[in-house]
Write a protein that binds this DNA or RNA. Sequence first.
DNA 1: AGGGCCATGTAACCTGTTACATGATTGA
DNA 2: TCAATCATGTAACAGGTTACATGGCCCT
Lengths: 191, 191
Amino acid sequence: MSLQYALLGLLTYSPMNGYKLKKIFDKSINYTWTANLSQIYRELGSLQKKGYVSSSVLEQEDRPDKKIYEITEDGTKAFNEWLMNFPESFPWPKRDEFMLRMFFGASVGKEELVKQLKKFILEKEKFNLEMQDTEKAILQMKKAIDENSSLQATDGNELYWSFITKRAHMSNEVLITWAKECIKELEENMD
Amino acid sequence: MSLQYALLGLLTYSPMNGYKLKKIFDKSINYTWTANLSQIYRELGSLQKKGYVSSSVLEQEDRPDKKIYEITEDGTKAFNEWLMNFPESFPWPKRDEFMLRMFFGASVGKEELVKQLKKFILEKEKFNLEMQDTEKAILQMKKAIDENSSLQATDGNELYWSFITKRAHMSNEVLITWAKECIKELEENMD
DNA sequence: AGGGCCATGTAACCTGTTACATGATTGA
DNA sequence: TCAATCATGTAACAGGTTACATGGCCCT
């Protein structure tokens, strides 16, 4: 369901086709939610059935025709209702394969685990490099969205987007700290 | 797939029925992975088809009969291979409804967002209370598993389980810090 | 010549969630 | 007496993943 609201939200900025929605998704919402193309097409179909979006075909000469989706009044209403109905609690399904492996750490062995943790740290540090310049990341979000819409639909979003990137960065940092502590403890306890 | 390995892993401690697996799951692996009963039954069926577990029915007088699953040699082999084949990277599908809502923060309004963030903090602080005594949490994991197996299958796991609980705690703490910073910034920017 | 981008989708499959069905025992 | 625990499952649905199909343009 959330994916549908994410799409509706993007469509409040401007009417768009599925392919474009995916592009924007990957540069913005991607920090908080992932989706692949076929899923987006499916959900757009479902939204249209509900009457939350309408579509029209834009014929192009050079390129394949585009199917442009536009949010309807009902869709706007549904989106706003979703935003305002803050749930009492969020189902927080945890699915972290790395941590699942850690659970069976005793069967892995300390040396191997240290190696795995070092790889983990490298991954996180790589992400940190990408994340480092949060302002740039936010500008890229804005750019990706504004490129498509004539009006500057994204004005006033910077603050909230900075919250998102900040959280990603902080969470990432703490994972690096944690992993380093684990390595230290493992090395202290090695035979 | 991970769920199947999680189940295989638990079955290396001792043969068990689905219901018991769920009980243990909720008190241990639950920090890293979630599963519901019907899913566990389905995956056990699938594991049996693959020949990774075998089952036998234990008749009981007072209570319903139990279907006890035991890990086979093939299953043990598959589990160990999984543990040792550390993937190059983990697909990290992000699905965080709270953050998705934050993305559209401009449409929510600052006052309302502050309220939502405060609720978020309360939730995290509640979790912190539960988490506070990590040693207790780990003892509960051990207890849940050892209760069922005659041998002390879980010896030597404490270190790895402490890594898991520590990470949960650290990640939680940083979220509280983050949320408080967000509130501060929102209040500074309120008209 | 070959890969990437633009563009839309379908089909099959896998995984996760919720509801339904059944029913005895135990403890508050 | 009522809820929880023990115990196993099926069915339907929702959501996510992967593979397949098609095909022209642009850049290297």
